[in-house]
Design a protein around this nucleic acid. Structure first.
Length: 340
DNA sequence: TCTATTTGACCCCT
DNA sequence: AGGGGTCAAATAGA
């Protein structure tokens, strides 16, 4: 069928792009770093595009009769789809395929936080032997972009308050809203993940802030990116001088109890006009753990506000521990891929 | 009127 | 068997 041919072509494209990514990874960095490293970033974008397209097609096909004809997508989490889709008129409540061993990332925090993605609550359950209900969220772009990411939020302790957020799947959607979210202090990241498929994937962190306070409704943004090519490495990264846009996207509304305990970003009007900056041990030192290899302007596709500039660093050492204060971000999901 | 949340029903999986 | 994840009608809010 046409569906099969389209998905087959996209799958082949993704496989070829992945082969190219592996070839670039095996290239000697010191010989032509200025070409190889940006190329790796571009290949990652291409891979993301293929994965995104396949995800959209997969979601669309799940609603059609052709779902049984689609080849399985190796890297996709089938999430919820009916084994035998009933007629549209029938009540489909509860008709889903429960994920078995999909990738999860768990984070315990003293307060709730916005993670840079737009979530929509779709359920709440009382859990056995738990004082507080578990709240279920899906990505707002589940249907318009086929994004399969979900998260669960549950208060697990009262005094002191402790919240557990569990993420399922990865965002394949574009972050279209303002990127500046909230202030995070993170020094302990846990993963419950047996899937090592992403171990070789570059991790891109993107930080953004407003720089113009003359027109709050049309802030001019700059972006600083850190591209880490080896997920086993860590590095000292300092992010200072944070502006914040209080009207960021994110969770529209948790329940009343959760909402009242969320961290709110500081108002931008009282902030400094300076950008965030990412400060490796030494920008110009050849032995620095973070090597700058690309400067502004750097396009981040839909993530990048008009007029964005950025610096991209490559991490090459694994000798440092990491503790970060983050007051801004555009793409936070990948943060949890980082193994500390 | 439109969009998001609430909540009971439904069903998968252990 | 029943806990847990998801659906979707009902409801709330902008």
């Amino acid at each position: 069928s046409d569906w099969q041919r389209v998905i087959g072509e996209l799958s082949r494209g993704r496989e070829v792009a992945d082969q190219l990514r592996l070839m670039l990874r095996q290239s000697p960095i010191d010989s032509s770093a200025t070409l190889v490293l940006p190329a790796q970033g571009l290949v990652s974008k291409i891979l993301e595009t293929f994965t995104h397209s396949l995800s959209i097609l997969s979601a669309a096909a799940a609603d059609s009769d052709e779902v049984s004809q689609l080849p399985p997508l190796k890297s996709e989490d089938s999430g919820e789809s009916c084994k035998t889709p009933p007629p549209p008129t029938k009540d489909r409540r509860g008709c889903y395929k429960r994920r078995r061993s999909s990738e999860t990332r768990t984070k315990d925090t003293a307060s709730l936080f916005e993670d840079g993605h737009a979530w929509r609550k779709y359920g709440q359950k009382d859990i056995l032997n738990a004082k507080h209900p578990r709240n279920y969220f899906r990505c707002t772009h589940k249907y318009d972009q086929g994004c399969q990411a979900t998260k669960q939020v549950q208060k697990i302790e009262d005094d002191p308050p402790l919240f557990r957020t569990t993420y399922h799947g990865h965002h394949t959607c574009k972050n279209l809203f303002n990127p500046i979210i909230s202030h995070h202090h993170i020094n302990n990241i846990t993963m419950d993940d047996n899937d090592n498929d992403n171990d070789n994937s570059p991790i891109m962190w993107s930080f953004a802030t407003t720089t113009s306070h003359s027109d709050v409704s049309h802030p001019k943004s700059t972006t600083t990116c850190v591209l880490i090519n080896d997920s086993s490495c860590t590095a000292d990264v300092h992010i200072n001088n944070a502006d914040a846009d209080a009207d960021a996207g994110g969770v529209k509304q948790e329940n009343k109890e959760l909402e009242s305990q969320m961290i709110k970003p500081p108002p931008s009007s009282s902030s400094s006009s300076h950008d965030y900056f990412v400060c490796p041990d030494d920008h110009d030192d050849e032995t620095s753990s973070l090597k700058k290899f690309k400067s502004a302007p750097y396009e981040l596709g839909a993530f990048s506000p008009a007029g964005s500039n950025s610096d991209v660093y490559s991490c090459t050492e694994s000798t440092h521990s990491m503790e970060m204060d983050i007051i801004s971000m555009a793409v936070f999901d990948d943060f949890f891929d980082f193994k500390s």
